[in-house]
Simulated assay, not measured.
Amino acid sequence: MQAVSTISNRDLRDEIKAYWSLRAETFDSQPGHEIFSEDERAAWHALLRKHLGPGEGRAALDLACGTAVISHLLDDVGFKVTGLDWAEPMLERARAKAKARGRQIRFLMGDAERTMESDDTYDVITNRHLVWTLVDPLACFREWHRVLKAGGKVLIVDGDFVNTSILTRLVKRLTALAGRLGLAGDAMHGAPNSEMAATHSSILSRVHFSNGAHADAVAALLKEAGFSKVTIDRDMSAIHRAQRENFSFFKGLERATQHRYAICAEK
């Protein structure tokens, strides 16, 4: 009789998909995910226009779209938007939100690393807080290069949350202390409970950027994948200022000290 294998048929990508499926329920309730003020919305619109130009009906692919926060911002400024995500609970909320707002956004289930979209299809590709989760970013960036039209652009919004500065570490400790004293209710923002936090840490330890998705490292891989005119924009201050309205003082200060960035690269 053949022995039953004890090897799991579940790989890291499956774990990442399951994690974000669970996060879907509370995703839109957290500042820094959904948009909570018109000032923040305007700041995001400015970032999109700065790097991508006016929408004018051009085709945009919003990868790992989640509940479609960035998809709606792209729609606001005139892009024809397709949102792609591999977590069905996220897509359920994305579709419901688009229906409630009367938006004509197309949603597909799919993997940002293997989109299954045709060559030379999109004018722009966007993603927010996706790159740090990638298992094989070089292959992924080559995939994005493939589905972009000539002259198309990818806009990445992400951060290095591993290699934090001394100031960021100090502020994070103050945020945690403030949370224990009841002065910062959002001290555990991004980690709803200890089990989810442990899952997050486990995933982070095994992805490509386990040592941090620094902007320069991401830009280098984009160039290796064939992109040109790679621009790193480290000025996220307008967005962070607007988000602080919905953060505690300590959480807002912590965010302002982090290595967050936008990277635009052209095919």
Rank of each mutant, 00 (worst) to 15 (best):
S165G: 09
A98L: 07
R13T: 15
R234Q: 03
V218S: 06
T257Y: 03
N246F: 12
L84P: 07
I263L: 06
L108Y: 15
L74Q: 03
L61N: 04
S205G: 05
M236W: 06
S201H: 06
L134H: 11
L74T: 04
D28V: 00
I263E: 03
L181R: 13
S165Y: 07
K223W: 03
A42W: 01
N163T: 10
R146Q: 06
Y261R: 01
L84D: 08
R106A: 15
K99S: 09
L222R: 09
F27E: 07
A184T: 00
D75L: 08
K267L: 07
D158L: 06
K267P: 01
A46H: 04
E224G: 02
L183A: 09
L48K: 00
W144I: 03
D235G: 04
A265F: 08
W86Q: 15
I70E: 13
L177K: 07
E38R: 08
R106L: 14
L91Q: 12
E224R: 10
T164C: 02
V230N: 03
D160P: 02
K149R: 13
D216E: 15
H208Q: 06
D160M: 02
E117L: 15
E254C: 00
L84C: 14
L12M: 12
T164M: 12
R95C: 15
A217D: 13
D123P: 10
F209K: 06
F249R: 13
S21L: 08
M188S: 11
R128W: 10
L134R: 11
M188G: 04
A213W: 10
S37Q: 04
V69H: 11
R206L: 09
G53K: 02
R173I: 12
M1S: 15
E245D: 11
A220M: 09
W44P: 03
H51K: 01
L12K: 06
R10V: 15
V124L: 05
L204I: 13
L12I: 11
A238G: 07
A87P: 09
